[in-house]
Write a protein that binds this DNA or RNA. Structure first.
Lengths: 209, 209, 209, 209
DNA sequence: GATGAATGAGTCTTCATTCAT
DNA sequence: CATGAATGAAGACTCATTCAT
């Protein structure tokens, strides 16, 4: 668990979890609203429902809050992805279903994902690595679904590329919302991307370099 | 021009341009290295080659530097895109060429694009809108190329989606470099994405919901 | 109370009063010595016996210190005036006594009053209004004493004028000290003003326009 | 002349006078509006109609502008006082006339006098002494008029006190305007003060301590 | 365990003054 | 003589972090 990456001076582990959840809940809202840098530790303490002194009983540095928040977001995303993906399914349908679920998830967690995109670079190198690994795990999950779903042979690279595309297209629905959500609903966006993925442009020209 | 968005107390317009270019050059490096928030105005002044007092003769607030930097990045990207796109070309080849040039551009400007992704939210609402418009312009350029290149009929939405996908896939090469650049070279990445775009997964299954 | 006009982030109200008194005491000396503008917040903090950070826990802006100082001066003046005025007394003696006490007070608080004269305009409009009201209150006190003391009928205007004259003559003893205190002692000044007030020039000429 | 107190690097004395008059005119307005400290040298230069560089050809330090302004105000006051006082007149009428003229003058120059009251302490000790002397001169003028006008014998001290009272009552009309000008017109104020001066309270009580 | 007062290093920004052109 | 670009010392204010209660 990520919790252990961030030491606390409190012994009671149950309490630590409880307090940190309060903290994450309060902080996320603030980070969404004004970003990590413009949010003060006092504000975080207040939004968490305890004093600044108490806040520092559960973290060491402000950055720890960001880490906890990022970790929690990834955790929630990962859990929901795992819940909606059935690795035993092998038809193309299961890929389609995975995409739909994932896009829905990204729609639900737009703000959180945006925060992550904009603030991860504020984490320490170690923490960034930790978070990056979570991302790799998720892409790997998508890769697995793709492998299971595709009948024909596709190169490892192609699969990786597709997985990355899907992954980013989901996030893009959120972080390019001001552009995309003018022209698409979540459904039409999902439908469009699936269609593009499956058929491509179907051009017959083969003369490419 | 964006210059006019940021007032300067210096009257000599040529000098303003010159000094601001020094400023942008110095600041970009710093922003890439440590981010906007962790860069101090003094560092910017120093990296620009003049004193803190002089810095403030050319801007009003620290945020102005960020705006100037963002604007300059978009400007450069836009110029290079315009230079590499030939709107009179109508074959699929021209789309392919556009993608290749654009991806190459994104490779060259990885750091700059990453900075933009992470820092735009620090701009004022107005400045964000200004910058967003530039993005729309660029996506529109891609849409035009796509329209010119595709023989068959494609819906406005489909074109828009493809344009956005290409746009983001280019940026993704930069901001997901730690994942992608392990498995791909720029060439293999470009090739892969073009192939996926043109052929899709070519699945025959039509049973999708 | 004026305290409430200036918000503090410290919750312990007793402490707030204590610290602000330290602050006022330190600041008054500095303001007397070098004026509000030439006094730095760091100097105020030092003279108050705490750090710059602590200073800002008890005020929001430097101007707040000035307000607190002005308010405290008026408060002290008012209290001493109230203590030395007996509203049940009705003879001319009580007016004379009031003047004597007030002039003595102005002598004791010369520096403070001078500071107020020179710095009030640095306060915000609101704060100026607040302070102005205190002045009106004090003039009103003098008006009351005059009304009580004078046997004959005097117009409201005349009373107001006399009150203002006395009020300013008291302050004048302090802010024109370089001129007046060469020729007068406090006693001779007081005596002279009382005499002038009571007898006037006693001229018989009535031919004035 | 005060001009000579403030060295200029310009040789052409006529030009110096001209430029300094521009300067004083511009600066007075600014000082009235926002006070000496909150007015920048750049603003003064602009309001004077020339560049910051030129400003510094005619003064050495910002304080010099304040000195020039104060000096100019006193000069104008003095000149008008001299013009309205006839030292050959010896009746009480001439005192009354002097008071009326002086109060009218103070009414005309309210703002300027207020500025002086609030900013002289920003001058160097020398400059303050210089300005103080001008004040003494003016009080002396009033003393002379009083001496000429009063038939009976009055002590030197009494005369001095009366002169100071008149002097301050004139200024008070300006700097206590928010209180006085609610209840009095310039005429009623003047009339009231003259009456008080001449008759006093006319009390018969002689039992004062 | 919880609290919140205290701290001071660090940041942005202003502005008087100079000096090369 | 006039200009205005350059300078940097100095000042107001913030905020992460600590620690005594």
């Amino acid at each position: 668990m990520a919790e252990n990456q961030v030491p606390s001076s409190i012994k009671d582990e149950v309490l630590v979890i409880k307090r940190r959840n309060q903290m994450i809940k309060g902080a996320v809202t603030l980070f969404i609203e004004k970003g990590f840098h413009k949010t003060t530790t006092r504000e975080i303490a207040k939004a968490s429902g305890f004093s600044i002194g108490t806040l520092y009983e559960y973290i060491r540095k402000k950055e720890d809050v960001l880490f906890l928040v990022c970790d929690s977001i990834y955790q929630r995303v990962k859990e929901r992805m795992e819940a909606s993906i059935d690795p035993t399914q092998t038809s193309i349908k299961s890929l389609i279903h995975a995409i739909q679920s994932y896009f829905q998830l990204m729609d639900d967690m737009q703000d959180e994902v945006l925060v992550m995109y904009q603030e991860v670079k504020s984490l320490s190198r170690d923490a960034q690595e930790y978070v990056l690994q979570k991302e790799r795990d998720m892409v790997a999950m998508l890769e697995q679904v793709i492998l299971n779903s595709l009948p024909e042979h596709h190169s490892k690279e192609e699969v990786k590329l597709i997985a990355n595309n899907i992954f980013v297209q989901g996030q893009m629905w959120g972080f390019r919302r001001w552009i995309l959500q003018r022209s698409f609903t979540l459904e039409s966006y999902t439908e469009g991307q699936i269609q593009l993925l499956l058929q491509g442009l179907n051009t017959q020209e083969k003369e490419r370099s």
